[in-house]
Design a protein around this nucleic acid. Structure first.
Lengths: 203, 203
DNA sequence: GTCGTTTTGTTCTCCCGTTCACAAACTCCT
DNA sequence: AGGAGTTTGTGAACGGGAGAACAAAACGAC
């Protein structure tokens, strides 16, 4: 978040910023921002603030965005399409090296300049391109078996868009994004707002 | 999450489950699950467990998924396409009533059975269909102005996929989903794993 | 009907993230 | 050079979520 806020400030031509400004851009409390940054080291100057470009590089280096991360996407349905074309990945150091799908009918397609390949090619792609990050955009029912294959092939980080809890061995990281749960949370608050004050409970 | 886990159990034909089983399905601790459920009331039976269908309905009612929520999606690029076609929305009580885009070239297209309309139609759609939830899938630069128009039109909950911090008046809820931040988090851990033990800090 | 077993609902404790508040440090002005 | 004014970095206080542990309640066996 801070990295993105800094990039925004840099684009606006700002060269220096205070913790207050940066915190506002990132939508957090300034004390929290300072504490977070302090874990990386002392990159600010008291009485002055932070050098935007310098801090930006330090954060980028720390979180590993300075290097290029090859990524494999499995499941080229609607969501897989969107992810393959998502420019935000490329601009943040992620390179989609392959699109895989179990459905042979999709193997003709070319998406985002890459042709959709068979899921069977997973192992060779992972080893050839030294891929360590996989994205699962398959239906829920296929997600676990895809994850298992990914892990067996040597992938150690998985971003899961399927609405399932994945079980993976120690040492493998999984992050989950569930699009409809976000909407459900909004709907819940919406119901509360317009809602039956009778049912109201101290939240 | 619990709702989804319960739906999964129901599909498997399970009629009753213990907090332990349900917690495992949802990927959380059983004590936490019981505490969470206790906020809704006492829907379990000691010594037996929870009735899957009954609990499912109670949760659905509480979070407002029993009713139908009309939703407007603004920004029909790759992501907007995917969201419009995402079956998970419909199956969880969300109905996409309109797709809007500022680009007139897109107004010819038909996506997911709906034709893409002008952003100018926002106000009339919101009032006609009583829409209270809007989804922003535009580029970052347009997001804030779209949000402002949404709020002015009467929308009170926004799901934001653009990588920007939105500022909205009191009473309006915003949730943000940033796809590439998730990848960055994975990359960070990945760097740590394969990483330079010299730079290692106690995380 | 009573006892043992199972499982929920709830209390207590712990721990971690967030915020407040202030000292240290730097700049600028005189 | 010195003092006033900023702004960082961090120690201390606060709050809340998460897990352990236990009492209350339901069911079944005898």
């Amino acid at each position: 978040m801070y990295l993105r806020a800094l990039t925004g400030l840099a684009d606006d031509g700002t060269t220096t910023c205070s913790s207050e400004e940066l915190a506002a851009s990132a939508g957090v409390n300034s004390a929290k921002l300072r504490k977070d940054l302090s874990y990386l080291g002392s990159y600010g100057t008291r009485g002055v603030g932070y050098d935007v470009e310098y801090l930006r590089y330090q954060i980028a280096r720390e979180i590993g965005v300075t290097q290029d991360w090859p990524v494999v996407i499995v499941g080229i349905g609607n969501l897989g399409h969107a992810l393959a074309n998502y420019s935000g990945f490329r601009s943040r150091g992620f390179r989609v090296v392959a699109l895989l799908d179990a459905d042979p009918d999709r193997h003709d397609e070319v998406v985002a300049g890459l042709d959709v390949r068979s899921f069977e090619d997973l192992e060779s792609i992972v080893s050839e391109d030294a891929v360590s990050i996989g994205v699962i955009a398959t239906p829920a029912v296929a997600a676990q078996s895809v994850a298992d294959r990914m892990v067996a092939a040597g992938i150690t980080s998985i971003l899961n868009f399927a609405p399932t809890v994945l079980t993976v061995p120690e040492g493998v990281d999984v992050r989950k994004v569930d699009l409809s749960i976000e909407l459900q949370i909004l709907a819940y608050h919406e119901q509360r707002k317009s809602g039956l004050p009778a049912t109201e409970v101290t939240a």
